[in-house]
Simulated assay, not measured.
Amino acid sequence: MGHSQKSESNIDHAIAGAASGFITRFLCQPLDVIKIRFQLQVEPISKCHGSKYKSLPQAFLLILREEGIFALWKGHVPAQLLSIVYGMAQFYSYNVFMKTIQDISKIEERNHFIYIHFIAGAGAGSVATIASFPFDTVRTRLVAQSNNHQVYKGVLHSCSSIIRHESPKVFFYGLLPNLLQIAPHTGLQFAFYEFFIDFYKKYTSNTDTSFYNSMFSGSIAGLLAKTIVYPFDLARKRLQIQGFQQGRKGFGKFFQCNGLLDCLKVTVKEEGVQGLFKGLVPSQVKAAITSALHFTAYEQVLLLLKLLR
């Protein structure tokens, strides 16, 4: 990333970002499906309750038994579109922001400060989120609906239904809490990643960003960043299903709220502070794996593009 920006073009960063998004999404989609199911369940996620989902292994096996293996890749097409557009926009704009900040502040490559990576990462995350957000709403609704009460038949059908029966604005429901979450989240992710990349290099005397360095730094960066901003992620998912009661039959009580602050307030009132961190464990596992794969695939594709020149 910051360490080799001068030698690659912006297009290389866009291609590497898109490829990274595709690979990561395909491998991590099952964890994402379980995480969303946890977030949308109002009842506690515990064994001593009459809840549908009680733990990560139980949810995994229950979805397999009730809905089959393909349910773990439910909403995969819009998720892939989301990931490719997001990955491309994120790494492309991160590269542009880094170059711009360096030009303005005249900071030497080797003297980067963490805050510069944070600012560039926050900007890149915001650009990528706005560009890919409609796919995220469609994906959430496809994952949220039960197989027995299907409202949407697929991506195109869900898009046309939302436009016909609701409004195009629906595609951007939950955008504000998402930006509030994504800007610091991506900023922290890039800042932590660069910090651990340098830390790893210092202690292993390896000047290149190796496969292992990317995996190690990416996983820790993802875990730390996700934990810090998690309540906003939960609020976003709950806002995206407002007005979608019919697709949620059989999943327990329906969660209703108006806007971000109300969503956080109602969650704490009904489920306690721990309700804000519902689904955190699969989310942390997913964040560590996803972030490691995301950065590593990106770095490896960049190296490949350099070799192909």
Rank of each mutant, 00 (worst) to 15 (best):
I63F: 02
C28I: 15
E67T: 09
T24E: 05
P78A: 08
G222Y: 02
R25L: 14
F135M: 07
K52A: 02
F118G: 11
T267V: 09
R309V: 01
S217L: 00
T100K: 10
D233S: 09
L223Y: 11
C48T: 10
Q80E: 14
F171G: 08
Q5Y: 12
A225K: 04
K106Y: 03
Q181N: 12
W73A: 08
E194L: 01
K6D: 13
M215T: 13
S283T: 00
Y298E: 07
L82V: 09
Q181M: 13
V268A: 09
Q102L: 01
H13I: 02
I15H: 00
G17A: 10
K6H: 13
L276K: 12
L305A: 07
L81C: 07
H149E: 12
V281I: 15
K286N: 12
Y92H: 13
A18M: 05
N206E: 15
F255I: 00
V273S: 08
I23W: 04
L261K: 02
R141Q: 12
F232P: 01
F251K: 13
K35Q: 14
N148V: 11
F135S: 09
A288G: 06
I11S: 04
G123T: 03
R309N: 15
R236K: 15
F60W: 14
V151D: 06
L264I: 10
A144N: 04
F251G: 00
V301F: 08
W73Q: 07
I289S: 07
V281G: 00
E166A: 13
V301W: 06
G279F: 02
I36V: 15
V85K: 07
G259M: 04
A124H: 12
Q29G: 04
T267K: 03
L180V: 14
D208L: 12
M1I: 09
G272W: 03
S205D: 13
F254W: 05
Y298G: 02
I11L: 13
F118L: 13
K237I: 05
T129H: 06
P168R: 10
Y92G: 01
K278H: 03
T24G: 11
Q39D: 03
Y212V: 07
I163F: 08
A292L: 02
S291T: 07
K153G: 15
Q150Y: 00
I116Y: 11
I101M: 14
T290M: 10
H185K: 06
G247R: 01
V42H: 06
Q41N: 03
Q284T: 12
H76F: 15
S167H: 14
A128M: 09
T209H: 11
S20L: 05
T227N: 02
R309K: 13
F232I: 03
S214N: 15
L276F: 11
T296V: 02
F216Y: 15
V229D: 00
H112L: 10
E270Y: 08
S210C: 09
G17C: 08
Q284W: 00
L142V: 10
Y53P: 01
P57E: 02
A128Y: 07
Y203P: 01
S283H: 04
Q181P: 00
Y200T: 11
F255L: 01
V229C: 11
R309F: 03
I241Q: 10
Y152K: 05
R236I: 04
L61M: 06
K35T: 15
Q41H: 03
F216S: 14
I162W: 12
S217D: 05
S93F: 04
A16E: 07
Q150P: 01
A297L: 02
S160K: 15
A18P: 03
L27Y: 14
Q242G: 08
S219K: 05
M88F: 05
F199S: 12
L27G: 09
